[in-house]
Every structure is written in C-alpha cells, then in structure tokens.
C-alpha cells in the first residue's frame, strides 16, 4: 500500500500530570495517513493516557496536537469524534443495556443529521436515514462475522465477542483515525489472529489509519508499520518494528534494567 508519509496527526511535546504523577513527560510523535502505528510500553507507562489526549478526554498541561495539518484547539471528546476519530477502550466500554446491533448503530451517530421533529414523526425523513445507516452497520456486522448476535444484549456476550462489538461500534463511524486500546488483551491465540486480520483488513480496505496499544510483541511486530515505545511517561524508542527491536533502551525497559 502506498504510504506517502502525509502526517495525519502530529503530537508535539505533550506533558500530562495528575497531581504529582507525571503520566506523560514531553512526548512527541506523528502518525502517517494510512499507517498502522503501535504504542507499546510496560504497565503504567502512559499509553492509555496518550490515547485519551488524542481523543480529547484528557487535556494535557503542555504541548500541541496537530490533526490534518491544523493545530487543534481545546475540544471536547464529542467534537473530536465528529472530526473522524473513533476508538475502543482497554476496559470494554459498551452500552450494557443495549443489543449488539444498537451498540453498533450508536457508532453512526456522527453521520445522522435529522432533527428532533423529524425523529418525532419518524415516517419519511428519520426512518429513511435510519435504514440507510442500518445498511452501513450491517456491512460492519458481516465484516466482523457477528450476524448471529445482532439482537443479543451485549452484557450477555462473552468477552471476546464484546471486544468485537466494540470494534464494530468504532468501525461503524467510518473513522479516518481509529484508536485501539489493547484490542487483543485477554484473547486466546485464535481470537488474536482474527482480530489482527480485522485490523489489517480495515487498514487496507478502507484506508483507515490505525493507532493501537498492544502488549503482545509478536502481534505488534507483525501488523504495525511503526512503533512508539513509552516507559514511565517518556518516549524511549520510535521507528519500524525492526529498529525498535534492536534499540538498547527498549530492550532494557523490557528486561527491567533501566537506570531510573
């Protein structure tokens, strides 16, 4: 696939503190259009916090986020969703009281424009919009092979399927940038292979840019184009999987021989 190295996202000198805890210490990196970018690092390194900064849930004390060549001002998470950034969570954040189908339909929220009065009347405008979006959702459902659980309340689904539904919700938004926080945590080898395949397919078929956090090195090395390595809130490595693999600081961090 053709990666012209256009910067979709540019993270500059981010600093994020919680009281005394410095979760992110002056980190910069970029995400190219169309690539799969991995963020790795030991527990508590600040990876999830980084995703939270990207989608506006945390507001860093210092630093800038550039998206599609423009500096982003202070924005709320829902505004960022409307810019075409979708994500999944480390601890599944599905809507427990709704069916799998409804959960994925919520992913279409940013694409549905009909006003409240049209929705009150339903017939005509709102229903048409509903069915058009339902078609997109059905494609996502087919893609993820979860047709059989459409009408199941997500609370009743096993963990692996919940993860898949959550991915479906993010995909339904047809995002430009997809953020995945440990999409394969707690899965067995087979499920991990499935998930890797979905991520690769999304990336190649829909040209969706992906940024993902993952602990399984094998998977990361297999599917990502470039990797950022974080440790104790600092960036200690950045490059292709091969470069990162041979980086001494990274090896030390993972073996626990660090100089802090």
């Amino acid at each position: 696939m053709n990666k012209e190295n256009i910067k979709m996202m540019d993270i500059k000198n981010i600093v994020l503190r919680f009281g005394g805890v410095v979760a992110i210490q002056n980190i910069s990196f970029d995400i190219f259009k169309g690539e799969i970018r991995a963020i790795i690092g030991p527990n508590g390194a600040g990876k999830s916090s980084m995703l939270n900064v990207i989608n506006g849930f945390y507001h860093p004390q210092e630093g800038e986020v550039w998206f599609r060549g423009k500096k982003r001002g202070s924005m709320k998470p829902y505004q960022i969703a409307h810019q075409g950034i979708a994500r999944t969570f480390q601890n599944i954040a599905l809507f427990k009281g709704m069916t799998a189908l409804d959960n994925i339909m919520t992913g279409r929220f940013t694409h549905m424009k009909k006003g409240i009065f049209s929705q009150m009347i339903w017939e005509g405008g709102a229903s048409r919009e509903e069915y058009e979006n339902r078609e997109v959702v059905e494609k996502v459902i087919d893609f993820l092979e979860i047709q059989h659980i459409r009408k199941t309340p997500v609370g009743a689904l096993p963990y692996g399927l919940q993860k898949r539904v959550e991915l479906g919700r993010a995909l339904a938004a047809e995002p430009e940038l997809l953020l995945l926080d440990e999409p394969m945590a707690g899965m067995n080898v087979e499920e991990k292979e499935d998930m890797s395949r979905y991520i690769l397919d999304v990336n190649s078929e829909f040209e969706t840019t992906v940024a993902l956090i993952e602990h399984d090195m094998g998977v990361v090395m297999d599917i990502s184009d470039r990797v950022v390595v974080m440790d104790y809130g600092k960036k200690i490595g950045d490059g292709t999987p091969d470069e990162v693999r041979n980086n001494q600081a990274v090896i030390d961090a993972y073996l626990g021989v660090s100089e802090h």
Binding site: F57, A81, L94, F95, M98, T106, F109, W122, A126
Partner: peptide
C-alpha cells in the same frame, strides 16, 4: 419514534456509559 432512533440511542448511551457516549460523538 424518539426512542427507536438516533436520539433514543443517544439517551441510552448516556444512561449506560456517559464517557463512552461522549467519545462516540
């Protein structure tokens, strides 16, 4: 009509998990 469409789902999303609701827009 309201509860079967977009606005109803946005309410239920807020009900079930407000943080996630905000992040889907």
């Amino acid at each position: 009509n309201l509860t079967r469409g977009k606005i109803g789902r946005s309410w239920m999303a807020i009900r079930d998990m407000d943080i996630a609701a905000e992040i889907i827009g």
